[in-house]
Design a protein around this nucleic acid. Sequence first.
DNA 1: TTGTGCTGCTTTTTT
DNA 2: AGCAGCACAA
Length: 762
Amino acid sequence: MQNYLNELNPIQADAVKYLDGPSLIIAGAGSGKTRVLTYKIVHLLNSGYKPSNILALTFTNKAAREMQTRMKMLANEGDINKLWIGTFHSIFAKLLRIEGQVMGFPSTFTIYDADDAKREIKDIIKEKKLDPQQYPANEIYSRISKAKNNLVLPSSYEKNYELQKFDSSIKRPETLAIYKSYYNRCRKAQAMDFDDLLLNTNILLRDYPDILDKYQNLFKYILVDEYQDTNVSQYIIVKRLSALHKKICVVGDDSQSIYSFRGAKIENILNFEKDFKNLKTFKLEQNYRSTKNIVNAANSLIEKNVNRLKKVVFTENEVGDKIYLKQFVDDKKEAYFVGDSIKKYKLNNEFDYSDIAILYRTNSQSRTFEEVLRRKSIPYKIYGSISFYQRAEIKDIVAYLRLIINKRDDQAIKRIINYPKRAIGNTTMQKIINVANSNELNIWDVLLQIEKLSKILSVRVINAIRKFVNLIDYLTEEMQKLDAFELVNLVLEKTTIKQVMSNDTTTEGVNKYQNVEEFTNAVRDFTDNADDDRSITKFLEEIALATDQDKEADDQDNNKVTMMTVHASKGLEFKKVYIVGMEEGLFPSYLSTSNDRELEEERRLMYVAITRCEKILHITSAASRMKWGKYTSAAPSRFLTEINPKYLEMGVVEEKNDDFFENKEEFNNFADRIRATKSYPKPEEKVLKKIKPEPTKNIEQSRQIDKKTGLEVGMKVEHTKFGRGKIIEIIGNFPNTKAIVNFEQAGQKTLLLKFAKLTIIK
DNA sequence: TTGTGCTGCTTTTTT
DNA sequence: AGCAGCACAA
């Protein structure tokens, strides 16, 4: 075995070698954190620890996988497979499947994702006849989530005067009642949401000492990655499990704590010293990733935060280019600049597409860039907030699988009982749900004895339901004999989903069908490669906790520009980065500007964004941007003024137009700053240059749409004489606009629009 | 019961 | 701009 310790700097090596007691590794951005963690695990193995005695917790599946891959170079594969390594959620889901029976959970319990959880809450609000405006499901969900992450069960919520006072003060006195009801329903459905996985683990370890004992003994060494992002629930789990051996190593960077909206407590890392006696602290401060300019710029920004641990990140890398700053008239110009810039770098062969990332604050910003990159034939991949497995068409199929495994999964039933259409409509479901609720039954129990409802349901409906029940029963029986892949195919076949979908020839329909095919491929992949358990249960387990980022492994052509939110970019690095949309109200988000804590989190987020970059960093903003269908203007982000200007290179302000500025003062401030740097050429002329505010439509587009009638290329239309057809071209100007239409029956015709009566059909 | 078209809301980030 | 939810019609 090669001496891996030689590949580390002295502090890294010390951190790896120290196994005697609790340790805290403060790892600055780009300081080789993953390397230290993986080497430390290898070191544990070499020091006689058995792999099954090591627990390593990460925040993303990707991080876990990355560590495993890296370890394969250094340790034997059999050992690595026996490690307990994974996300908090997946590890403790696994634990609950093994041990949850004592709490009344079968090993087949369902995991509700955020979507399921919100639907359930929405249903409850509806059934309680509360005003959905007053009780937005989203906010109630996050309130409940917060309670759970602070280990506040409905019973403690009820006793907590403060919480209820707050709910009353915002006119939501029924929050507790909703929480109670939601909590009970999840239990009844044998379902756990993401927060329950941690909460129930806590209850398990608290109330069952022999189980606690078992796992305290099993986990002889515990490592936690991204410790700054742990919430109370996770923190207590870690504390309980490590209480016996006190062999725990947590790694984190307070400057990169960006998940407090999800209940993460930055205090967990700030106070770690108080929690563990004889703590050894290691500070990794040398950055191996970025140029001096980038590291220094990031430092100068994060220094503005008051609440932080002392740490000075430095680098011995080259000075590098300054950070390029540019502002544009609107979001389209911004996107075109990025597209052109990527093309230029690519032409000069300076970077591969895969070296480049576009980072933004909100997912909705991706659209504009997607459009531009597609137009310029630049290959890209987007990591969206919606995971592949959360797409409606996939969730439909998954719902069948979930129901086959767990008949009490009410959310699954609601989703599929009328998909594909079987004439079991909303009214029917409402009646059934009422019966279920008033008898403390699951929906499935009611369906099993649907004949009893002959007074309130028609024979037709009862027969439809019986058929549905038979179908599910049949599939459940078959499940015993089949592997996951075979079962999925049978489901697609017998439910007629496959047939229904292939009949849909619209673009979206075809797209959905392709997604389903991709899904079956993923299932096949799973059955082919899973080493021990290839049941559908195991597969569902994996995808319930999968995110979009976890699906790229099999992507062959990886030379693509990456687009993602800054949050999603944590832990990654790119040679060239564009941070876009640096505007007040967007980054920092308008929701965070009123309070210092949240503003500091936004600043850390910006810190994360900057430190993703190895070599060339562009930061852009737009003076005006399409938001909710309207153009809204914004001043450049305050964070730009917080970076020490000596690390910045101000670009030319492109075609500035003060018609776009309601807030001139803020713009002028920005302009002043730009003037203050030498590289900016004669600002006044540029700034005062006026252009017509016609930002959206380009010529090419306006030729393809007839403004008068709203007809557009690609639309389907109906003509009184020729029947249905599709517009393939629009030519000429009003009043002589003509449309070339390809009719299904009559063939291609050119019609003068002022005469032809075309009606648009969907 | 299903389909359609209108209204009003959304966007912060995610395991 | 896009979408969910809803009212109303077929």
